[in-house]
Simulated scan of single mutants.
Amino acid sequence: MDGFSSCSSSMAAKTAAAASSSDWKYAVFLSFRGEDTRNNFTSHLYKALDQKGIETFMDDKKLRTGEEISPILVGAIQRSRCSIIVLSENYASSKWCLEELVEILECKRTKNQRVVPIFYNVDPSHVRNQTGSFGEALSKHEENLKIKGEKLRKWREALTQVANLSGLHSLNK
């Protein structure tokens, strides 16, 4: 729990400071594949953060019906001090998740945003090397959506980079 504890405790201490800063609106941004974890792990994580008073962005909690998703998500990522990425089996099958991941890692690089990956029932090496469900998902994006070149390269690099970060592992298979 080192990565999560570090993120949550430092965020709890900095929530007031972050709120007064014009740059930070959220202490934590949660990135996750809804169909995999929204109604179990991620909702419990959100509730735990909320109970600690940590201002957390979770898309179904902060978005209003009818709003465009992309600009709101990008803005929430950019205005969050920390991102927790719940990498589940179908995470890479969502182009939204992959785009979020690229943006999160850009904010890590440019804004020193803290990033904590949670490998939820996936092997980090599958994420790092794009094998298993991660490799299959990228192949489908390439075949079905005709995604090639720079975008696919960025997604692959982002998956490798996030898998190389210290995070939490949960292999309950």
Rank of each mutant, 00 (worst) to 15 (best):
K151T: 06
I104E: 09
S133D: 08
K52P: 06
D123Y: 04
D59P: 04
G167W: 00
R79C: 14
L73T: 10
V162S: 00
E68A: 15
N39R: 14
D2K: 10
E143P: 00
N129E: 09
Q161L: 15
S166W: 08
S22K: 07
S22N: 10
A48W: 02
I84F: 00
L45W: 07
S8Q: 08
S31M: 06
K14C: 08
A76P: 00
P124V: 01
R81W: 00
D23T: 13
D60T: 14
S22F: 02
S83T: 12
N172V: 14
F134G: 08
S43F: 02
S133L: 13
V115N: 09
A12T: 05
V102K: 05
I147E: 05
S70F: 04
N40Y: 06
L171P: 00
S43E: 14
E35L: 11
S80E: 13
V115A: 05
I104Q: 03
K52F: 04
A48L: 08
M1F: 15
G66T: 00
S125F: 11
A158K: 04
A158R: 07
E89A: 14
Q113W: 11
T15P: 02
E143H: 06
T37S: 15
S43C: 09
K62Y: 03
S21W: 12
T37K: 15
S70D: 04
I77F: 13
P117S: 04
M1E: 11
R38G: 13
R109P: 09
G53H: 05
I118S: 07
N90R: 07
S70V: 06
M58F: 07
V162F: 02
A158L: 06
K140G: 03
N129T: 10
E103Q: 14
R128P: 03
L87F: 05
S80M: 12
G3V: 12
T131M: 03
R114H: 12
E89L: 06
G167S: 09
Q51R: 14
D2N: 11
K154V: 06
R156P: 02
L87E: 07
Q113E: 06
N121V: 09
K148R: 01
S125R: 14
I104K: 00
S70I: 02
A19N: 09
R156A: 15
G34S: 11
S9Q: 11
K61R: 11
L105D: 02
Y91W: 02
A163H: 01
A137D: 01
W96R: 01
D123E: 11
L73V: 11
L73D: 08
G3N: 12
L73E: 08
S70M: 00
